[in-house]
């Protein structure tokens, strides 16, 4: 079954295609490169890590937060330890793929999109749950901020 026909926002689709266009044996290396692109936290979070939320689905301590600005545009921030490169790679995919989207576009990202990256066999479904968990939390955070903005 192909899941490629599910619409993904452009940046996520580009990342997915980069993985699928890479031979399977080199995909872990690509994930490692992506993990190195995880942007550092903005100072306002680095100084106040309690504003980030712990992602329980991940095996390593990862903190993430999807922020909606006044114009309704989302920025996804995350941090994970250096010794957890897989988790950093997942966080980096989301940071690159979700940041700049509208809140509605984030809410429309299919929950199972991590399964489209051709990593299931290499990384294992259990580990990919970590990325799905980050997305689920990001969506909830977006919804909470939308609700708060309407009050």
């Amino acid at each position: 079954m192909s899941t490629n026909d599910v619409d993904l926002p452009e940046a996520l689709a580009e990342l997915r295609d980069a993985f699928l266009d890479t031979p399977e044996r080199d995909r872990l290396q690509l994930l490692l490169e992506v993990s190195r692109e995880l942007p550092p936290l903005p100072d306002r979070y680095a100084d106040a890590p309690e504003r980030l939320e712990r992602v329980q689905e991940c095996q390593s301590p990862v903190y993430a937060f999807a922020e909606v600005d006044d114009a309704g545009v989302v920025a996804f921030h995350a941090t994970a330890p250096e010794e957890a490169p897989t988790t950093r790679g997942f966080a980096s995919i989301l940071a690159q793929g979700l940041t700049g989207l509208t809140a509605q576009q984030v809410l429309d990202v299919p929950e199972d999109f991590p399964l489209q990256f051709g990593l299931t066999k290499l990384v294992s479904p259990l580990r990919l749950n970590g990325m799905a968990g980050m997305l689920t939390r990001a969506k909830r955070q977006v919804r909470e901020q939308l609700a708060a903005a309407q009050v």
């Binding site: 872990l28 290396q29 994930l31 490692l32 993990s35 095996q59 390593s60 250096e82 010794e83 957890a84 490169p85 897989t86 988790t87 790679g89 290499l122 990384v123 294992s124 580990r127």
Partner: peptide, 9 residues
């Protein structure tokens, strides 16, 4: 390792 990429680093 637990982390499937750690060896690669």
């Amino acid at each position: 390792d637990e982390d499937v990429l750690l060896y690669e680093t």
